[in-house]
Design a protein around this nucleic acid. Structure first.
Length: 285
DNA sequence: CCTAGAACCTGCGAGC
DNA sequence: TGCTCGCAGGTTCTAG
């Protein structure tokens, strides 16, 4: 499931293989994959044709391909199972191929958006003065962004009447963190996922942020996480950070710190993994 | 305005 | 064998 490190790996792949190429034609094979493009698939295809792609950017789990001299960008979100693949024209269509982008050159490759569960998609939007697509203006900077404001985050975090994991997953507070890296950062911080944010001191927030950054950087170093064949990067290679996970998916396995069997708890229609000894729940619920 | 929870989607594996 | 059901979870929408 792509979170910030996986999306960044894909962005780098796009920078290498797609930037500075001119779009020839676009095929939208499933309307849901362009549902955020309100004018529809035909409009999406027509508006891309003839434009040259600039250097891809990213914020949190969103990435976008600017169209040079157009004031617009193709916004991409991978959702749960989305992939952006650069494939040779002759490669057979993937079962869940949703969008194909051909280029006006002789490189012999095309960009494909493949998505089994169709939570992700592509859309075209105007960009602001900083080059940010307008529809993601509400998404906070991510913790690897040099302009991320730690102090402002601490204050906003404390103001929330919520619990720590909910806050980590709130993309308007801090972006790029999903269920997997939230559990990893909480395990490293020895924090239970239901600890209220209101009691956090500045050093405690700083420690948590540090662990978020560490675990994401480590994942980025090995090229992203993969739990099944769904996630592959832009060139089709699987990540392998899953071997390094300390919490996520380790129900019943010994905590790597204290040996206590790890637990899984249903949480928000998903799961939270934690060590019952290292990560004690708060007294008051 | 704020927060909590449901809905969206499809493939897979467990259980019957 | 083939069916049902739970599970995976990022984002958006709705209810309170």
């Amino acid at each position: 499931m792509p979170e910030l490190p996986e999306v960044e790996v894909v962005r780098r792949g796009l920078e290498r293989w797609v930037a500075h190429r001119t779009v020839d034609a676009v095929e939208v094979l499933h309307p849901r994959a362009v549902r955020r493009h309100l004018a529809g698939g035909e409009d999406f295809a027509r508006r891309l044709a003839g434009h040259r792609i600039g250097v891809p950017s990213r914020r949190g789990k969103y990435m976008w391909l600017p169209l040079e001299d157009a004031g617009q960008a193709v916004l991409a979100h991978l959702g749960m199972s989305g992939q952006l693949l650069v494939q040779p024209h002759e490669a057979p269509d993937e079962k869940h191929l949703r969008i194909r982008v051909r280029f006006d050159d002789e490189l012999g490759t095309e960009l494909r958006f493949v998505d089994q569960r169709t939570f992700g998609g592509l859309s075209l939007h105007p960009v602001d003065a900083e080059g940010l697509p307008d529809v993601i203006a509400h998404i906070a900077r991510d913790p690897l962004d040099p302009l991320f404001d730690d102090e402002a985050f601490h204050q906003a975090f404390r103001r929330r009447r919520t619990t720590v994991k909910r806050a980590l997953l709130d993309q308007s507070l801090i972006s790029g963190v999903g269920n997997i890296y939230a559990d990893e950062a909480l395990w490293r911080s020895r924090l239970h996922y239901e600890r209220p944010t209101s009691g956090f001191t500045r050093p405690r927030t700083a420690e948590l942020l540090g662990h978020v950054r560490d675990v994401m950087s480590a994942a980025l170093d090995v090229g992203g996480t993969s739990f099944d064949s769904l996630y592959v990067n832009v060139n089709g290679e699987s990540g392998y950070f899953d071997r390094s996970l300390d919490a996520y998916g380790r129900e019943g396995l010994p905590c790597r710190r204290c040996g206590t069997p790890m637990r899984r708890r249903p949480w928000m229609n998903r799961s939270s993994y934690f060590c019952p000894r290292c990560q004690r729940p708060p007294r008051v619920r």
